[in-house]
């Protein structure tokens, strides 16, 4: 039996025009929106879904109130797309790690071209390559929903909040806060290179709950003690190359000071040993 159209109580009279767009990325973050299976039909009643090319055939290109952008800028086409979206949107949300921090595709910025050149698409003639960079390096972003993938609930929370006239405040405390509340063993204590202490939480420490150390997908926490984190990892026996690589995997472009801090703390250690 097909359920009749759900009647949503207190749905806003003027529904906000919303669009979900993906640029270069795996589209996993757009899937996160859809993984809210139980609530997705209710959601569509709350908003005026103007565009969602990932699942929708007809997409209206006009002015939007809220635009969610998934993926990072990696081609000229992407760049034009984000500029167009910015011009047409009142409020832009970076959805997922690629859009927020650059994520794994942006790791290319930290290696030589000869290391990846052979992997670039050659067949597509008109694909113009740009340095892979998060959305906010090209346009103004009003809100971030980070994570690889983002927490599906966070997406809905954002939409419900704006409908009630509130913009949710991003979770800026480190992953450790939720991790300890979840009763986990500290993975640093067992010698794993966990980046929880310098990574913004809000993920309910999902990786650590499952036994995997934090790789920092939600980007740096607001007041991380990067210097100390590097020191701890060194003491656990990880070398600087490893530390640098690990920290750059998800949020390299948001840690422009990393080289400097590694160098600076090394000098300090050196001075101590003399």
């Amino acid at each position: 039996m097909v359920k009749a159209k759900t009647i949503i109580k207190n749905a806003p009279k003027i529904k906000p025009k919303v669009a979900f767009y993906g640029i270069t990325g795996c589209a996993g973050c757009l899937l996160s929106v859809l993984f809210n299976e139980d609530e997705i039909l209710d959601l569509i009643e709350l908003i005026d879904l103007k565009a969602f090319p990932f699942i929708k055939e007809v997409n209206v290109e006009e002015k939007y109130d809220y635009v969610f952008i998934e993926g990072l800028v990696a081609s000229k086409e992407d760049l034009e797309e984000v500029k167009r979206l910015r011009e047409n949107a009142t409020f832009v949300v970076s959805l997922g790690a690629c859009a927020c921090t650059g994520c794994i595709p942006a790791y290319r910025n930290f290696t030589l071209k000869e290391n990846y050149e052979h992997l670039l698409y050659k067949k597509v003639e008109d694909l113009e390559d740009v340095q892979p960079t998060p959305v906010d390096m090209h346009i103004k972003v009003d809100h971030y929903i980070p994570g690889c993938p983002p927490n599906k609930k966070e997406i809905l929370t954002f939409i419900r909040s704006v409908l009630r006239g509130k913009i949710p405040i991003p979770y800026s405390s480190p992953v450790c806060v939720e991790c300890r509340q979840n009763g986990n063993e500290c993975l640093l204590d067992v010698g794993k290179p966990c980046l929880g202490p310098i990574t913004a939480g809000g993920c309910n420490s999902v990786c650590i709950n499952g036994g995997l150390e934090c790789w920092g997908c939600r980007g740096p926490s607001k007041d991380m003690n990067l210097e100390l984190m590097i020191k701890i990892l060194r003491e656990k026996g990880f070398d600087d190359k490893f530390i640098q690589d690990r920290m750059r995997t998800f949020a390299g472009l948001k840690l422009p000071m990393l080289d400097e801090v590694i160098k600076h703390t090394k000098e300090k250690v050196g001075a101590k040993n003399e």
């Binding site: 405390s173 480190p174 450790c176 806060v177 300890r180 202490p197 003690n225 100390l228």
Partner: peptide
């Protein structure tokens, strides 16, 4: 303070 990550393990435990 120099050894503090502000991770809140202390208050949570």
């Amino acid at each position: 303070v120099n050894q503090c990550l502000s991770c809140a393990a202390c208050t949570n435990l």
